[in-house]
Amino acid sequence: MIDKSMSGKIIAEFDFPIVATKVKEFSLALKNPDPLYTDEAHAISCGYPSTVMPITFPVTFPFHIKMKDAVMDSMKLLGMNEKTSVHGEATFEYKRPVFSNESLKAVMKVGKIFEKSQNSGKTMTLVEIIYEYFDKDNEKVLIFTNLFIEKS
């Protein structure tokens, strides 16, 4: 049974350094060898402060969070049934681009928890897990939202 009172609660806060070698590894794992992601000298020569953080790079948060398994532990905290839950959506919203050698602060929290009817007539519960990333000036630079769906 999902605990709807968890909506709005902070699950974790952590540092999120953007390391150029991890940016390169991530970009190459996505089969994208663009030197703007993989070669700092090239990125700087093109007028950027360093290599550019790929759009979906915020998914690498598990390397920086203290929880053993951030996704599974969060599901347990919320009372979700991991056997009937799936990852439904991911959204990345950028206020500005982020570059290697920046260090962001991140807040992981529970967003909306709501229900929808399935075609079968059964109800499914949708849970947002929101990651907000802030720069050294405490400006919010991006929001990454995961939507998990628990089917009944």
Partner: peptide, 17 residues
Amino acid sequence: LTDWAGPTSVKRYKIRF
């Protein structure tokens, strides 16, 4: 998207599995 618009132009990216 980024091959066309460059790596810093995407403001919102939403995907459903």
